[in-house]
Design a protein around this nucleic acid. Sequence first.
DNA 1: CCGACTTTGTGAAATTGTGCACATGGCACG
DNA 2: CGTGCCATGTGCACAATTTCACAAAGTCGG
Lengths: 232, 232
Amino acid sequence: MARTRRRIPEATVARLPVYLQILDEQADLGVDNISSEGLAELGGVNAAKVRKDLSYLGSYGTRGVGYEVGYLVYQIRRELGLDHDWPVVIVGAGNLGQALAGYGGFGERGFRVAGVVDIDESKVGSELGGIIVSPMSELGAIVASRGVAIGVVATPPAAAQDAADQLVAAGVTSVLNFAPVMLAVPLGVTVRKVDLAVELQILSYHEQRRVNAVSAAQLQAVPAVRRRGATA
Amino acid sequence: MARTRRRIPEATVARLPVYLQILDEQADLGVDNISSEGLAELGGVNAAKVRKDLSYLGSYGTRGVGYEVGYLVYQIRRELGLDHDWPVVIVGAGNLGQALAGYGGFGERGFRVAGVVDIDESKVGSELGGIIVSPMSELGAIVASRGVAIGVVATPPAAAQDAADQLVAAGVTSVLNFAPVMLAVPLGVTVRKVDLAVELQILSYHEQRRVNAVSAAQLQAVPAVRRRGATA
DNA sequence: CCGACTTTGTGAAATTGTGCACATGGCACG
DNA sequence: CGTGCCATGTGCACAATTTCACAAAGTCGG
C-alpha cells in the first residue's frame, strides 16, 4: 500500500493545516463531530470547498451527520506527514531566529528544534528557548545525527544564500526561508519563502485602495464601490 | 484623476512586492534597465507573467529595451501605496513581537513601528528595538495620534481575538495576524494571517511525499516519478 | 420499518490564473 | 531616413481552482 498517493492540489494542501488547527481547537472544546458547514464557518471559507478538500483524503465523513473530529484530525495529520515529529534546524540566531526557537507553536505541532546555528562566534553558546546555539561548523553533524530534513533560514539577506547552500550540502531537502531574497537551490530541494514585509505591503495595497475608494466616493456621488470583505 | 484604479488581480498584487524587492536590489547594484526576462529569472517566474503583471500598472516599459528600474520602482511603490510611510502598531511584546519590532526589514520598506503594546504590566516600559512597550490602555491613543491604519497581532493564540477587537475598536482597518487562530473582524477590515507552523506543515507534506515516492520507486522498478522543481 | 430531514461527495459550470505566440512599437546603426 | 533587431504588450488557449447544484447515503422520530 506504499503507493504514491493521489496528488492533492496545492491549494488544498495549503488549507489542510488550517482545518487541522481548527479541528484541534474543537477537539479541545469537546466537540467530536463537525459538519463541513461548521468547519467552513470557523475557517472563513466556503463549505463546498471544505468538502472538496476533504474528499481528496478519502470519504471520511458520514452523510447526514458530518465528520468525526478525532478521526479527521488523524487523517489530515497522516496526509501531511505529521504522524511523526520533524526535527528542524534553524540557521541564524538573530531576532527572528530567537523568536522562532522560542515559538511554542512549532513544538506543539511536531516540529522539534534540533539545533540553532549561527556564523557569529559571539552568539555561539548562548541559550535560546532551551537550545544552545552551535557554531556553523556543527551544522553537518546536527543534520546527520538528528536526521534533519527541514532547515529554516533566519539570517540577514546577505547571508541567506550561503546558509541555504550549507543546509543543502548538509543534506536538508526542504527549506523555509525568512530572508527577503530568492534562494537558488538544486532541483529536488523545496523552498518556501515567508517575507514578513511582503505581507505588510499587500495590506498596504488594500488599505490604499480603500482610501482611494473613499475619496473617489466623496468626489463623485457614487459610493457604490464594491469592496471585498475580510480576506480569509 | 483620483479614479479608483482598474482592479489588479490578487495573484499579481502578491507578486508585486517581490518584483519591488528585486528591483531595489538591482538599483543598488547600479543596474538601471531590466528586461522582463531578467526580472523573471531573478524572481523565479515566467517572463510572460512578469510582463502581464506589470502591464496592469500601465505601459511603463520600452519595447526593444526593457523597463527602467528606477521608474518601475516608483510605479510599483505608488500602486502598492508605498509612496508614503505606514505607521504600524504591534500588539504583544513576546518573542515574536520583539523580533518584529527589531526587524529591520519593516522600517526599510516604509513600515515604521509607531508603538508596541502588551497586556502584561511587567513588560511595559521595557525597550524593544528602540521602542518602549506601552500598556494596552495606550493603544487607542497611539492609533489616533499617529494615524495608524495597520495593526500586527503577535500575542498568544488565546489573546489574539481580544487584541484584534481592541485594534479594530481603536480604528485600525488592516490586521496582520501571526497567531494561529482565525480572527473574526467586522466587514471592511482586512485580515492577513501568517502562520509559521502552517508553512512548515506544507513543507512536511512535500517532504513526506518525497519519502513515499522513493520507497515506492524501490518497491517497483519505476523511478520515473516526475517531481516539481524548487517552489517559487 | 418508513418517511422526513440532514449532510456528504461529486459532476459540471464559472471564474481565475498561466503561458504561448506574435503583432506592435521603438531603438540603433548605417 | 530606412532596415534590422529586440523586447513589450496582449489575444488566446489551456490549466487550476472555486462554486453551484443535486443525487446518494445516512440518521432519527414515530
